[in-house]
């Protein structure tokens, strides 16, 4: 019933990267970035911030038809700045404040003047952190990989 999007085309919208990365910034990181802004932006709430549920779907057999696995808590917010820029924030969990801050930074990012601030303060560090975590997990897991070897039998 819900609209289905062509997911491989998602990456073409640069805002997906922005919203995805903001979802991975901690609330402390977002609050700290807000404080370092020259001027705290004034904004109006369009929706939320609110916490609700998203039902997580799996696929039968891993790649077959979808089924409903269970729900997860999600917090989201949508705001607009005085100049009309609309920002969206989404994240797993119940932190509504973090969702709202994410929405503000998503809105700020949309103007050239504030984009580099958001990139430098939040997005690039989040990308670096994510890469480090991914690498660390892969390396720790790789250390538990089994190297099979065959014992030499005495038959000859």
């Amino acid at each position: 019933m819900s609209a289905a999007f062509a997911h491989d085309s998602n990456t073409h919208d640069p805002r997906k990267r922005v919203i995805d990365l903001l979802a991975r910034c901690s609330r402390d990181e977002l609050e700290a970035a807000m404080v370092t802004l020259e001027q705290i932006p004034s904004y109006l709430r369009l929706r939320g911030p609110e916490t609700g549920l998203v039902i997580v779907k799996g696929r039968i057999g891993g790649g077959g038809s979808p089924f409903n696995l269970g729900e997860t808590t999600v917090s989201r917010a949508a705001i607009h700045l005085e100049d009309g820029r609309v920002g969206h924030g989404f994240r797993l969990g119940t932190d509504r404040r973090a969702a709202e801050l994410s929405a503000v930074f998503d809105a700020l990012w949309q103007a050239e003047t504030e984009r580099s601030f958001v990139e430098q303060t939040l997005l690039l560090p989040a990308e670096r952190k994510q890469a480090l975590e991914t690498d660390a997990l892969a390396r720790e897991t790789a250390a538990t990989k089994v190297d099979f070897f065959t014992m030499v039998r005495g038959e000859d």
Binding site: L46, R47, G48, H80, V86
Partner: peptide, 15 residues
């Protein structure tokens, strides 16, 4: 639908 008109005007206090 990023037109702001279609986004404003919801409940000020949803609950």
């Amino acid at each position: 639908h990023s037109k702001t008109e279609s986004l404003i005007g919801g409940f000020p206090d949803a609950v």
